[in-house]
Design a protein around this nucleic acid. Sequence first.
DNA 1: CGGGATCCGTAAAGATACTG
DNA 2: CAGTATCTTTACGGATCCCG
Lengths: 229, 229
Amino acid sequence: MNDSGYGQFCPVAMAAEILCSRWTMILLREFISGSTRFNDLRRGVPRMSPALLSKRLKDLETAGIVTRVREGGASAYRLTKAGEDLRPVVEAVGAWGQRWIETDASLKKLDPNLLMWDIRRNIDPKPMPKTRSVIEFIFGDLPKARQTWWLIVEPEQDVDLCSADPGFDVDLYLATDLRTMTEIWMGYVTAARAKRAGRLTVTGSRELEANLTSWLTLSKFAKVDKLVA
Amino acid sequence: MNDSGYGQFCPVAMAAEILCSRWTMILLREFISGSTRFNDLRRGVPRMSPALLSKRLKDLETAGIVTRVREGGASAYRLTKAGEDLRPVVEAVGAWGQRWIETDASLKKLDPNLLMWDIRRNIDPKPMPKTRSVIEFIFGDLPKARQTWWLIVEPEQDVDLCSADPGFDVDLYLATDLRTMTEIWMGYVTAARAKRAGRLTVTGSRELEANLTSWLTLSKFAKVDKLVA
DNA sequence: CGGGATCCGTAAAGATACTG
DNA sequence: CAGTATCTTTACGGATCCCG
């Protein structure tokens, strides 16, 4: 008998034994967002120790939720069908969080690295120019080392994120502060409203500026209505 | 800064800080199933220490998921609107568990107390006689002390569960084993099939026997199709 | 550089007993 | 009935190191 679990045959309990251990839900969010490599996953859960990440990946493999596959020399982790089927669970958790967690509580956990990493993987290159576009984010309230971020969008390619100047000409600048950009990303405030309030300044390519809301895709939870302030 | 959490503004992470601590999901299942009193909750999570139960209740109160109210001399815990809104989360977790957790894994965690407690709160008295009905469950494979259970169903009242003979005349007997009854409850096998296989014997009131499937409501996950053996 | 393993101190959970 | 108190065990966090 496995004494580490809840000792209940109920499917909620059986599932919770796997899904509700520390970091697992966040790890699943990373998988559902498309990460497959150890260090990509790690970037999404920077405060999780690599030892624990390694253990959790093994646990998820044992549970039949991820499979480990060799890709060239490196290994990649991919969701199985059972893992893909967890999408509704993660989305239900996220939707509840967006509805009921107080805005201020979320905004006490600002992190430019996580924000930009999230923005990066949700950029939609389709409405963007058919050449390379470089977008510079400037968080005026942060110390120099974390102030400036570049997104490099090449058509038909994954978007690149840099925190060191890549040396390309910049097509669009977004000058703001970390809290405002996070609020926009979470759907707490619109980009237009932030601009009018003087909390966001957009300069550069007229085209990119004009259709900003079509390529700067927001968090998938941004459309969920909040029910608490 | 709260270092105990995940340190991420993402709603999945914010929600998981609350929902994915040990026992919390099972406790929420108990609330959603209708328990409100400390000792009722405790019966649904018998392997959780009362100290931890007490702490989790306080955590849930702080999170705005339950409220503690005085009812006469005793206290009761009730879901708030935010707590009620967790129903889709718990149901998604349970549905995934029913689909993907192997049957044998669940059936290694048999527990007559949990099973009968679950059956008790899902009995539907409406299709039953308008007088008191007493149903005796006999698990022939268990030691004497846990072999026999009585359900006392009075119209318009909560169903009573006893593991000591209440002394009433019995209207219906169900003789089976713990695994079979659990399989029926979980929807792995039908009562009719278990009867044909000689794993369940029903004797007593013809009426109660005839409409057994209408008053013996199965687990709410029984209708979810399994995708693994 | 990707993908871990090891060691050690702290924090959470389990077991059991007891109380207003 | 509704919890505390106490002690032990396990899980987790953080730093460091290893290896192809």
